[in-house]
Computed example of a mutant assay.
Amino acid sequence: MAIRHERTGPGPSPDRGPGPGGERVVRGEDWYGRELGAGDTYTGYTFYDTDWTEVVDEGAVFDGCTFSGVRFNASRHIGAAFTNCTFRTCNFFDARFERCKVVGSRFQQSAFALLEVHGGDWSFAGLPGADLRKVVFDGVRLREADLAGARLEGAVVTGCDLGNALLSGADLTGADLRGSDLSSLDPGTVRAAGAKIDLEQAAVIATALGYEVG
């Protein structure tokens, strides 16, 4: 079980509004191994260079927050919410999200090695050009997500709702796409050599290419 660490600086308290002077900023704090729960709610906060390594987050809520240079390495997030947030130059090495709500959040210049996402709603998430090689998205709602130009070589994107997602310029080489909604995929705008699809998906793609199936 993760060890709960006390805040190393004055920092704001969740659910209690801004700190002294009205600031909503957490800067350079060590949150290593901290446990967050449903009673932890942050709205409009900015987290700079905070260490979230091995954080265990079960149901915390972050809305309209900015994370800059935050290390989410080996953190676990279960039933948590990160809605309309911005993540800049963050590291998600070996991070895991289960049944989380990440609607409308944007990711910029972040690292995702060994990231796993299981279930949850990532609709309208912005991941353009992201390096998502070998990440796992399983059973995730990704409707209208921006994955344009994303690198998904060898990724597992199974059972996902990709309805109206932006995929132009994405590299799906060797990706496992079985069971995902590929109705918005334009085969002529992506690289997909060796990608795994099922028969139903093959029919959808063939139709998109102008073939009559049956």
Rank of each mutant, 00 (worst) to 15 (best):
A38I: 07
S75E: 00
L166F: 08
T53Y: 00
P18H: 02
H5E: 11
V26S: 08
S180H: 06
S183K: 12
T41K: 11
W52P: 03
Y48L: 14
T8M: 02
T43K: 13
D171M: 07
A195D: 03
L132T: 08
R96S: 08
A38M: 02
V157P: 04
E116K: 15
A202T: 08
F87L: 02
D131Y: 02
G120V: 04
E29D: 09
R96G: 05
S75N: 02
V135N: 01
G69W: 03
R16A: 11
W31R: 10
D186A: 13
G169R: 05
G174H: 10
S183D: 12
E144D: 13
D171P: 08
D171Y: 05
P10V: 10
F62I: 08
V136T: 13
R143K: 14
G37H: 12
T207K: 12
E98M: 09
S75L: 00
I78H: 12
G169Q: 05
V156S: 03
N73Y: 00
P12R: 04
A80D: 07
I205G: 05
E200A: 07
S183Y: 05
G179T: 12
D161K: 06
S123T: 14
C160R: 07
A130W: 06
L167S: 07
S68E: 11
E212W: 12
A81T: 14
D138W: 05
T66N: 06
A130E: 06
A203M: 08
G22K: 03
V103P: 03
G9L: 12
V55R: 06
F112T: 13
V56Q: 15
E153P: 02
I197T: 13
Y42F: 15
F87P: 00
W122F: 15
F107E: 09
W52V: 01
G9N: 09
T8P: 00
S68I: 02
G188N: 14
P12H: 01
V157R: 06
R7M: 05
S13D: 09
V25H: 00
G11D: 11
